[in-house]
Each structure stands twice: as structure tokens, then as C-alpha cells.
């Protein structure tokens, strides 16, 4: 099959990192069509999506001449500025007691993120309780308990198959009586197109609204950095159901760069709160837009 062979040759280059593709783009001498083509490849490789990529390129095409930019190095600075403008958000400081509701599709690393998040708050001297509201997936609460033990926090769980909203309710009661500062709710992975599961999530959300009406509350969606454009849709649907405040971007330690958050920022205007950069319990860090962009481009 000639097609495959030819592709393989071509794809050898793909195996090089995304940064390498940006390097190729910015190494051109002139800011001509070739430069824009190479840049398109780099932006798409980073999963920014066709539409966001074209928007970025169009801005460059107008701003490069108007700012009389001729050197690739200056174009790079401009690109960084454009990207930064898109995803640089001011995230409001937390107030305690704080409730964090974690949601997302299957397999993105929600439970792991919950464990790491708990550790993060513990290391800041906060008291933490986790609600094991994933009552669906086999052994989910066992997995969570192991993480909680590592972080040194309490978990409230019911048996497999029980009502997740009830788990959340019990956790809230327990947190109120004990005066716990941070409550983290881990929910089951659900594909965003499953209507009844989205309804279940709404119910959890309502229970929290009712029981903790005045507390600081952040609904965070966990996204896998290796996911492509479907992530945009995930955020859209979860946001419709429970109003998402922010994103936890996991699995950034692979070769994917999670550029889809750029497309999400353009369409949904939702900031990234945290980034998952490894398997260790301390590998969840507050998201830094500038570092993120530098990591993609340099």
C-alpha cells in the first residue's frame, strides 16, 4: 500500500515534538506563506483545532504588517502574546469553607486529580473531606480511599450502586458538624451525551446548592490533555448542565500538549485552574498560562 508507506515517511517527522514544529516555523527567514503554513501545522499539532488556529493565523496576518514585524523572533513574541491573551484569566481567590465539585468524562483522571487536590490543600494546612460520589465504576471508591490515605484525608462513601447525591449529602452534613474547610466531590465519569447521567450530576449540584448555599463553590471539569477537539464539546455540555468554573488539565506529562484549552477559551471562556504533570501525589500544580505557552512553543 503506497499510501501507508508514504505516510510513514511523512509521519517520521511528526514524532518529533510539537516544540520542534514551532521551531521549524520560526526558523524561516521571511514571514511568507511558507511561514504561515508551517505555523498552521504546529498549532494544529498542539490540538488547538482548525477554527482557533485559523483565528490565530488571521490575527497574525493583520498584526504582523501593521506592526511592521519582519523578524520571525518578533512574530513569535506576538504569537505568545495572542495566545496568552486568550487563556490568561484572573482566578478569584478561594474562600473557606470551599466546595470543589469534580466532573468529567470517563478515564480523564478525575479520581487521581481528587487525591492530588486533597494533598495540595492538606499541605496548605486545610482540613479536607472527600465525597466518593462515583458509585458506578467498579472499585472507584477503593481507588479513592487509597489516594485519600496517601493524602491523609477522610473519605465518605456508600456501597457501589447507591445514590451519589446521598453520598454528597452525608459528606456535607459531616463537614458542617466537623467544620471541615475543604470538601471535594468526586463523581463518576460520564460521557456528556448520556442524558440520565447528566441529570444525575445536576441532582448532585442541586443538593450542594441547597445544603451549602453561601459557601465558595467551584465546579471543575477534568480534561485529558491527549483529547482532541471533543474536549470543546465536553466543556460545553457539562457547562450547560452545572455551570463549570474551571478546568483541570491532566496528563500533560505525555507528548500531547493540551492545546485544546485554547479552543475552549475562545468558545467558552473558561479558565484552567490546575495542570496534572505526573503520577506522583504532588504532581498537580496551579496552572500558569505563561509557562504553559512557553512549554508549547519553546
Amino acid at each position: 500500500m503506497g499510501f501507508f508507506l508514504k505516510l510513514k515517511e511523512g509521519l517520521k517527522k511528526t514524532r518529533e515534538s510539537i516544540s520542534r514544529k514551532f521551531f521549524e516555523a520560526f526558523k524561516t527567514k521571511e514571514l511568507d506563506q511558507k511561514f504561515y503554513d508551517a505555523l498552521e501545522v504546529a498549532l494544529i499539532s498542539a490540538d488547538m483545532g482548525y477554527i482557533a488556529t485559523e483565528n490565530i493565523l488571521n490575527r497574525l496576518r493583520t498584526e504582523i504588517p501593521s506592526k511592521k514585524i519582519s523578524k520571525p523572533e518578533e512574530a513569535k513574541t506576538l504569537l505568545k502574546k495572542i495566545l496568552l491573551e486568550t487563556i490568561d484569566y484572573e482566578i478569584p481567590n478561594y474562600e473557606f469553607p470551599l466546595l470543589i465539585l469534580i466532573s468529567g468524562v470517563n478515564g480523564v483522571g478525575k479520581t487521581t486529580a481528587v487525591g492530588k487536590l486533597a494533598k495540595l490543600f492538606v499541605s496548605q494546612g486545610k482540613s479536607v473531606v472527600i465525597a466518593a460520589a462515583d458509585t458506578f465504576r467498579a472499585a472507584a471508591s477503593e481507588q479513592l480511599e487509597i489516594w485519600a490515605e496517601r493524602a491523609g484525608v477522610r473519605v465518605i462513601s456508600h456501597s457501589e450502586g447507591s445514590d451519589p447525591a446521598a453520598v454528597v449529602f452525608d459528606t456535607l452534613i459531616s463537614a458542617k458538624t466537623k467544620g471541615t474547610q475543604v470538601i471535594i466531590v468526586d463523581t463518576a465519569g460520564r460521557l456528556h451525551n448520556k442524558k440520565n447521567l447528566m441529570e444525575e450530576l445536576k441532582k448532585i449540584n442541586r443538593v450542594i446548592d441547597r445544603e451549602l448555599p453561601n459557601s465558595d463553590r467551584r465546579n471543575l471539569i477534568v480534561l485529558d490533555a491527549t483529547t482532541g477537539q471533543n474536549a470543546v464539546r465536553q466543556v460545553e455540555v457539562f457547562n450547560e448542565a452545572i455551570e463549570i468554573d474551571g478546568i483541570i488539565l491532566t496528563k500533560l506529562d505525555g507528548t500531547a500538549k493540551g492545546g485544546v484549552v485554547m479552543a475552549i477559551a475562545e468558545e467558552q471562556n473558561i479558565p484552567v485552574y490546575y495542570a496534572g504533570v505526573g503520577e506522583g501525589i504532588d504532581d498537580l500544580i496551579p496552572f500558569d498560562a505563561k509557562d504553559f505557552i512557553d512549554a508549547i512553543l519553546d
Partner: peptide, 29 residues
Amino acid sequence: MLGQDSVNVADRFNQDLDISGVILTKLDG
């Protein structure tokens, strides 16, 4: 739902293990 990185993932696994086939998951919706 894998993005552009799918080629890197598949290629690496295939190079290392000479896989015999692929199973796609979460192909609903």
C-alpha cells in the same frame, strides 16, 4: 477522543511491541 497525538502513541506502541490490532473505546455519542 484522542487528538493529534494519536499518531505518536500508536507509533510508539507499535514500534515497541509490533501490535496486532487496535480496539477503539468510548466511541459513543
